[in-house]
Simulated scan of single mutants.
Amino acid sequence: MPTKRQMPTVRLRRLAAELRRLRTGVELTREDVSAHTGINTATLYRIETARVRPQRRTLIALLNLYEVPEPQRGEILALSQGASTQGWLRPYHSELPEEYTAYISFEAEARAVRNYESLFIPGLLQTEDYARAVIKGVLPMASTREVEQRVQARVERQAVLAKGDPLHMWAIMDEAALRRVVGGPDVMHEQMRHLATVATDPHMTLQVIAFGAGAHAGMPGSFVLMSFPEVEDPEIIYIDSMAGDLFLEAEADVRRYGAIFDNLRAVALSPDDTSSLIASLAKELQ
């Protein structure tokens, strides 16, 4: 049976970035490192791209080669020890898609997210009934058990908005996400009331791109940009599509999607006008 691939975590990404920095700092290629340590270049590539956590003896060999002094050496070893721990997972999440569980872990450790959605209410802002209707519609072949597992995971994820140091969220939606009557008028009425409530939270910013705005930069699809508390942890982009889930972290991609989000902010209704639109839609659905 094939081995389940190591899911990336914030700490694993930080460890990978630090090992890349140390290697380039001593001006060694991966081939040079392999020649000095016997570590396979493919293995080193997987370590430096956060595909796997290095074994302790492998990590020590790398630290020796890079001549890493204390206390930095101890800090890196401690970082590696906790690098495999997913930040927030429940036992049943092992049955969810691997990319989704990785996303859940990143989201739980994020400081802020910028989320654009073209067709859905953002997952963190969905009511339970709306989430259930969406999941049933998007995954028509899923069993009742699978649907309920995903609904439970989606609802539990929302704890990041209510914790002591809540996640800061800036959500932009196309008006189509609000106009599509998912689950029927009653479900959408409840969903609009929920959006009206969360829009008043100080750590939340909601905007809608009105139909009248015409074509805009978000039309190709939805995306999430996540940033983390530590400056050493680079931002990450998550894209969910029918072709599969994708994580991007190259600086060029982060800049590009950041610029797209800024453009969407500019063409969207203001937060106050967005709240007025949500209240109007809730009244229509009542």
Rank of each mutant, 00 (worst) to 15 (best):
E117H: 14
P122R: 00
L124K: 04
L124H: 02
L125D: 05
Y130E: 08
Y130V: 08
A131W: 03
V134K: 05
V134M: 15
V134I: 15
I135T: 08
M141Y: 06
A142Q: 05
R145G: 07
E146C: 03
R150F: 06
V151D: 03
A153P: 04
R154M: 02
V155W: 04
R157E: 00
R157K: 14
Q158T: 08
A159I: 03
G164I: 03
P166A: 08
H168G: 13
W170F: 13
W170D: 06
A171H: 12
I172L: 06
I172E: 01
D174W: 03
E175N: 05
G184Q: 03
M188S: 09
E190T: 12
E190L: 07
H194G: 02
L195F: 08
A196I: 07
A199F: 03
H203P: 03
T205M: 13
T205H: 10
G212T: 14
A215R: 11
A215T: 10
H216S: 13
A217I: 07
F223T: 12
V224Q: 12
M226N: 07
M226E: 14
S227G: 13
F228D: 05
P229M: 05
V231E: 13
E232V: 07
P234Y: 11
E235L: 01
E235K: 05
I237C: 12
Y238Q: 12
Y238F: 14
I239L: 15
D240K: 05
S241G: 13
M242A: 10
